[in-house]
Computed example of a mutant assay.
Amino acid sequence: MIFRRFFSLTVLLLLTVGAPAGAGQGNLRLDALFQALRATSDESYAESVEEHIWDFWLEHPDAEMIRVMRTGVFSLNDDDYGSALAAFDRVVAMDPTYAEGWNKRANAHYMLGDYAAAVGDLRHALMLEPRHFGALTGLGLVYLALNQPEPALRAFDAALALNPHLVHVRRQVDTIRSQRLGFLL
């Protein structure tokens, strides 16, 4: 079973080697990974495919961009949201077409409680990469924080349509739907 998963992922990656590189979104290499993600029922394999998708989203041809992104991510992980926001502000200024920069900046805005800015950045990320299930999940979380369960549900459902293996998102959807049923009864 492990060999089969390894072989399948290796074949997927080899099929994508000749595709043009970019800053993640719109990258032809992602198409095969998204197809594999939706087609598999093997959770370990799905997790590996998802990690590869995130790797592509984080790709950027500019080494300075990667350095600034890393700084922002480390700041987010250290709960230093102001520094993270400053780093991600720089990222989106350096390359406004880099979807992951907008997604990460939305994370910092969310953590700082600036939900309107987070929604704006997430929508921008989704305009650049409509398959960004991370941005859709983030959008759902922002709408939950704003006590808007219907738009949250739509965002979570869209994320699950792209990546049906998002267990925490599925739990959120189930909770929202059961609460909605409770209000109807």
Rank of each mutant, 00 (worst) to 15 (best):
Q179C: 08
V91N: 11
R123K: 13
M94A: 11
H109A: 07
P96D: 15
S8V: 03
R177V: 09
V73F: 10
R123S: 03
D121A: 09
A86D: 15
D114R: 09
R180I: 05
R70L: 12
Q35T: 09
V68D: 02
R171V: 08
G18F: 03
L185C: 04
R170H: 03
M65V: 06
Q35K: 12
P20T: 12
R123V: 06
E59C: 11
D121Y: 05
V119W: 06
S75D: 12
V17K: 08
A152K: 04
A32R: 11
G138P: 05
T175L: 14
A39H: 14
L181C: 00
S8A: 15
R123E: 05
A135N: 03
A135P: 03
A84T: 10
L30Y: 00
D78S: 10
D31N: 13
I66S: 00
L153W: 04
A118C: 01
E59H: 12
I176F: 10
Y81E: 12
P130G: 00
F7R: 15
V173R: 11
L139H: 00
G182I: 12
I66Y: 06
L126K: 03
W57K: 07
G82A: 07
G82R: 08
P130I: 01
G26H: 05
T16L: 01
E129C: 00
G82W: 01
F56W: 02
L76V: 04
R5M: 13
H52S: 11
D174S: 07
P96M: 11
I66Q: 06
D80M: 02
L128D: 00
E100Q: 12
P151L: 03
G140A: 01
R180G: 09
V11H: 13
V92C: 03
D79P: 03
R67V: 01
P61G: 06
A19Y: 15
N107D: 15
Q179M: 05
L85S: 02
A39E: 13
R180Y: 07
A63V: 09
E50F: 15
L76E: 11
F3P: 08
H124F: 05
R38G: 08
E129S: 05
A21S: 08
Q35R: 13
A63Q: 09
M69S: 00
L126S: 04
F156R: 05
P96A: 15
D121T: 06
D95M: 01
G26V: 02
A63N: 05
D31E: 14
